[in-house]
Write a protein that binds this DNA or RNA. Structure first.
Lengths: 225, 225
DNA sequence: GCGATTTGTTACCACTTTATAACCAGTCTG
DNA sequence: CAGACTGGTTATAAAGTGGTAACAAATCGC
């Protein structure tokens, strides 16, 4: 599990890096925003820790840029009391924040919680629910005993979200956010299309969905018998 | 999602209550510490907002008592600069704090972030009162052992409000405000219609309401035996 | 760079939900 | 008692939602 840390405070960078390494994470360090963005594209980390005050490009800019291309979990490091910064960060799509100063214990707990929420903790191997088996590595689903079906990136991500909460309805807004990131918020058409395409692939009769059902006015859910 | 607010400043209590209600939370209000603790046991809220300075029992005491029996997320309202208070609150088990004064936008952002962190944002399951079971995720109600009935957004919202204060009459004005927001205020027809439609769905004989009853001249209430 | 795949955009239709209006019966009030 | 008001009902118009198709734009693999 790779984590990118960006902070211009060298001591803090060292401390955070050490703490995370001790807990078994692979750590990538950046001491300014530009470097952070370069390393992000280059390394594709599973989680990003951003200080707001940085030279080069500040935390907001980096967060916004990352959100343009990815839905990776982002945690911001904030200075206690800077309310405006905090709200701005959350609205830009940051998933959580951590007030400085913080204890290593807190850091680990929050990082783990965030990874868990993003459904990334388990890692390898296919996830299953009911008659569905999703393999995120191969980008395939298998329905019952049928042959595995190839999925596109977005289709896989949608199914991942639905599968992670199998049996429960997930709101359209939430799906939009999780699949497309911050930018996609509000565009229902995207979701309509994606659902349509996924149904073509996994339903035996796409016009009468048995697995990926609509909860009118609410969202979609994966039915597991 | 139920939130308990405790603050002795009546104006602030009103503002916070209104803000949260607008965002779809069910709000329980207390203006002193003793009341807060009583309502906590009684209502079992999903998040607690505590002012530190309160008559009865102050925020610290309330927070400590709550922590004896629950791990519910607690957010403290603090006065900027009172570092001592802040540290004490966090040591007592508060999960976050908010400096006064704060904007409604900040409040919402922080409350949501805290709920997210606590892993409560998604399906906290259906809320129940009497023979009614309301599932806000799926937008359905179940009356007794009948099949669940689908609700529209507004219907669900109305029932959420009534259910959150089951057994108590809620004034028409308040319902209008909470379901439609600012703009709907004053239009009784909207509410008449909505009540009518909800009764068609949940009452066995809609012309003789057993559950959603009228309090003439006052408002409506949900009867729980 | 080229063809194939994937993703985004626009449009249309059927259907549901919400808003608006009108009518009726009962109650309250001067 | 008349007139104003309230709440319930019905009918209809306006707005919104979800499914589908066709096509354009972007991206990927070679």
């Amino acid at each position: 599990m790779k984590i990118l840390i960006a902070d211009d405070d060298h001591d803090l960078l060292g401390l955070i890096g050490f703490t995370l390494t001790q807990s078994g994470f692979a750590v990538i360090r950046a001491s300014d925003g530009i470097t952070a963005l370069r390393l992000f594209s280059q390394e594709g980390p599973d989680l990003v820790l951003l200080d707001i005050n940085m030279p080069g490009a500040n935390g907001f800019e980096v967060c916004a840029r990352i959100r343009e291309q990815s839905t990776v979990p982002v945690m911001m490091l904030t200075v206690r009391g800077e309310e405006e910064d905090l709200v701005k960060a959350l609205e830009l799509g940051a998933d959580d924040y951590l007030n400085k100063p913080f204890s290593p214990r807190t850091l680990i707990a929050r990082v783990k919680a965030l990874l868990r929420r993003a459904g990334l903790e388990a890692g390898a191997g296919p996830i299953a629910a009911g008659r569905l088996q999703l393999d995120m590595d191969e980008h395939t689903v298998r329905v019952g005993t049928h042959e595995p079906v190839r999925l596109t990136k977005l289709e896989a991500r949608l199914l991942q979200m639905l599968l992670a909460h199998a049996g429960h309805t997930i709101s359209s807004d939430r799906l939009l956010m999780q699949v497309w990131g911050h930018k996609g918020a509000g565009d229902r058409q995207l979701l309509k299309q994606l659902v349509h395409r996924v149904r073509q692939k996994i339903e035996s009769d796409p016009s009468v969905p048995q697995l990926l059902q609509t909860a009118p006015g609410a969202g979609y859910k994966l039915v597991v018998e």
